[in-house]
Design a binder for these strands. Structure first.
Lengths: 322, 322
DNA sequence: CACCCCGATGCAAACGTATGCAGGAAATTT
DNA sequence: AAATTTCCTGCATACGTTTGCATCGGGGTG
């Protein structure tokens, strides 16, 4: 049987309420506080979070919903969240929804009830679905925005422009963009940034390695000398296909990815890509919820936070062929 | 304010205890059960897991501890756990310990108190540390074993032999093994299986892409014509280094990985590797805890489960050069 | 010296649920 | 038809905390 406040109270010769106050920062005399602390320490007392949660209504737990943990992008976010959570000693429930929007909304409902807030990575659900399923005061969108909802996102448009400007500076005039899913928020952001440029657009490919493999042949059949891929996985699939077709990168074709997942540095050649804060975004999202906890909703500004992006140049991009 | 049993009781015209019984499968007449169910449904009642946990002592939550979520190996495990948890409607706390054994043990203590059990991926902690920090009835080791503890592991030795036999069948006589961390359980398993063979062993490399890059030059300076890497990440680093040094795989050098993470199929060339069940192991570990829940510990056998491994042959291994 | 105020403490209620116990009605047995 | 069992239901309690309220004592002020 675990030690409870009663055990500590007995050991310290005070009442349970005094123990509770001494431990949670209530009004207690320094002397008794010391006594209580000592007793608690000696007995190895740890408050039962379940019981505490029942009365305070706050569990100290948060939920994290991601479409796919195997996707390094989301793994990075999860890692960032976990690291921050460990630092502030709160728990985080994780749910991998397997890219299924229905499962996502279900998890949202479930976690919404059993946690103090949820961090939601939902690139594909519609704004309407989110607004209906999520509590706007305790849910924060990660790497996406929706009207009226809390969010931590990256400056996708700026990153996109940096990538294109980089390629143009290298002399490329025929630049292809491999578009991802039409219903993705980040995808729409990319496209809106690209409206300012003349671009060869290649239809919606799956945002996966396989999608990139598939796109490789499309690109080779076009006059493009450079490609901006929807994300790094696509870029890596593309690199793979180019390699098997004997096209040298970056001599014959430049490739730029998006996200800067850890694999990007491991590809051959190492991938030029737009770095997006992932772990940092996850940590910031948790932080946002933590700061809002308890305070009145309107007291906190910064409902939408935008983090910077930046191009990191590696070896997959080079000057345009003559 | 959320709807509670009291609301349902009022709506159904019965007492709270009857509601509780109707919903949890107690002894209730079919008629009243139907009434209660209807009322609960109409009010959208969902039991408060915190309150339930307080009285039953079981929260319906489990903990998962991994060294690094960015490592696809652990991401796969986490995904498997999450999928199974979603199916049986239980929550899973995740903690990424950043490869820090101390943080691991701390998380173990913390989660041990607030959950019904914890799934522990701890390749590096010593047996003694685990035995001291973990409750042997509610903790299950994933992909590792320790005396007296529950575990789900893979048949590492068999997989290792398959890999070596494969290379020998291809005519290789000088086979190198890139050993990983000495303190890793899986590493020791590999080495014990290799005791039966004549092998060139290359010292402990970090189990990362960088470790593989580093090892590349070591291997090239040896007479080896084939390499079994500690894991896929190392193998991919090795492939990368071999490519930059102009060594063709598999014509001049065969490379075999271990784990079959999703990236293995994406490398260039696609990696021959030993597949070990990851998601399945995670799911099985959760299942093990679920089955034991409530029952007396000794009633359940299968304290140590071993899952099969199997070589998957792709393009990074071929016949030995003449 | 009387008054008031304030800080420290204990008592008891509350959070939402599960469950042992007892009471009552219905069903079965004698 | 009476006695006994069976089944269903409600009351009350418990889980481990936090917290409003009341109490008590001491110190400062008038």
């Amino acid at each position: 049987m675990r030690t409870t406040v009663h055990d500590v109270a007995d050991a310290a010769g005070v009442s349970v309420s005094t123990v509770s106050r001494a431990l949670t920062g209530g009004s207690v005399s320094p002397a008794t506080r010391a006594t209580v602390m000592a007793a608690a320490e000696r007995l190895g007392y740890r408050p039962n979070r379940t019981a505490r949660g029942l009365i305070t209504g706050r569990t100290g737990n948060y939920g994290l919903i991601v479409p796919d943990l195997r996707n390094p992008f989301f793994a990075d976010i999860a890692k960032g969240v976990s690291a921050r959570a460990r630092a502030v000693d709160c728990g985080v429930f994780i749910t991998d929804t397997d890219e299924d929007v229905a499962a996502e909304l279900e998890a949202l409902a479930m976690l919404g009830r059993n946690t103090d807030g949820v961090l939601l990575c939902s690139p594909r659900a519609t704004d309407a679905e989110l607004l209906e399923a999520a509590d706007p005061d305790t849910t924060v969108l990660v790497h996406r925005q929706a009207p009226g909802m809390l969010s931590i996102a990256a400056d996708i448009a700026a990153g996109t422009r940096q990538a294109i400007d980089h390629l143009r500076a290298l002399g490329h005039r025929q630049i292809a963009f491999l578009a991802g899913p039409d219903d993705s928020w980040a995808g729409r952001e990319r496209l809106s940034a690209l409206a300012d440029y003349e671009i060869l657009r290649f239809g919606s490919v799956a945002p996966t390695f396989e999608g990139g493999v598939l796109a490789g042949d499309l690109v080779l059949a076009s006059p493009a000398t450079a490609v901006l891929a929807y994300n790094d996985l696509v870029a890596m699939g593309l690199l793979h296909r180019l390699a098997t077709r004997g096209v040298s990168v970056p001599d014959q074709m430049s490739v730029v990815g998006y996200d800067d997942i850890s694999l990007a540095a491991m590809s051959h050649p190492p991938l030029t890509t737009v770095a997006v804060p992932k772990g940092r975004a996850g940590a910031a999202a948790l932080e946002l919820l933590l700061r809002r906890a308890g305070k009145t909703p309107s007291a906190v500004r910064d409902r939408e936070v935008t983090l910077p992006t930046g191009l990191v140049v590696r070896s997959s991009s080079g000057v345009a062929p003559a």
